[in-house]
Nucleic acid binder design. Structure first.
Length: 214
DNA sequence: ACATTAAGTGATT
DNA sequence: AATCACTTAATGT
């Protein structure tokens, strides 16, 4: 936890009116996490709503065998839809949130949720918008898994990864990609090789560079 | 130099 | 698309 600097919720200023923004800054606690840290695990209870001030959080589902499936990323200026559910209905999480890179979260105690939903229209709107956006993304995920083949899913994965890393160079192993897409490494290696032959990307060790015409 | 981890490949289901 | 078995390449100690 850190002391409050002057103003760190600037990424959220378009969502909230000034009164609420000030209250948010006053009531929240800053939390820093390192890349790879698990912030929230399946089955865990949630005591605070996190607003992502800086960084990227990966949200994924894990099955009984511990296999992972990437659902979506949360970027700065956003929040996690799951926590809203959990907080308001006091449920436990059904997803895992992992820090994709070093990140900073502003944590708001759940006790303010009810009150703000009534008192601050901009808070309510933010919550509803977040839920809607996630719902939409979730449908997209389902489409991917149900209707698309691995090669398409891989391409989308690479693009998304590149977008959130804000770079055409992605640092991942084939194994990691396999884990996140719920497939095995050999399949990933072969598909990547195919894409490399089509001049869509370059493969390095633990690193992939996307080329323009992917 | 050796052990470990990452990536490439043919064959089989 | 998954699994196996094996090879080769890269990286760490």
């Amino acid at each position: 936890m850190l002391d409050h600097p002057a103003k760190y919720l600037t990424k959220f200023s378009e969502h909230f009116d000034p009164t609420l923004l000030a209250e948010l800054e006053e009531k929240s606690m800053l939390m820093e996490v390192k890349g790879g840290d698990v912030i929230l695990n399946i089955g865990q209870n949630i005591r605070a709503v996190p607003l992502l001030v800086d960084g990227v959080i990966k949200v994924s589902r894990i099955n009984d065998e511990g296999q992972e499936l990437l659902l979506y990323y949360v970027k700065e200026g956003e929040s996690c839809a799951m926590t809203f559910n959990c907080c308001m209905l006091t449920q436990t999480s059904v997803i895992r949130a992992t820090a994709e890179e070093d990140s900073v979260l502003a944590c708001i105690p759940v006790s303010f949720m009810e009150e703000w939903m009534q008192k601050h229209p901009s808070w309510k709107k933010f919550v509803m918008t977040t839920l809607l956006n996630r719902f939409t993304e979730m449908i997209k995920s389902i489409d991917e898994v149900a209707f698309k083949k691995m090669d398409e899913r891989l391409i989308n994965y690479l693009k998304e990864k590149s977008r959130i890393a804000d770079s055409s160079v992605i640092n991942v192993t084939h194994q990691q990609i396999g884990n996140e897409l719920g497939t095995n490494r050999v399949v990933v290696s072969r598909l990547l090789k195919k894409l490399e032959n089509e001049n869509k990307l370059l493969i390095y060790n633990k690193q992939i560079k996307l080329l323009k015409d992917l």
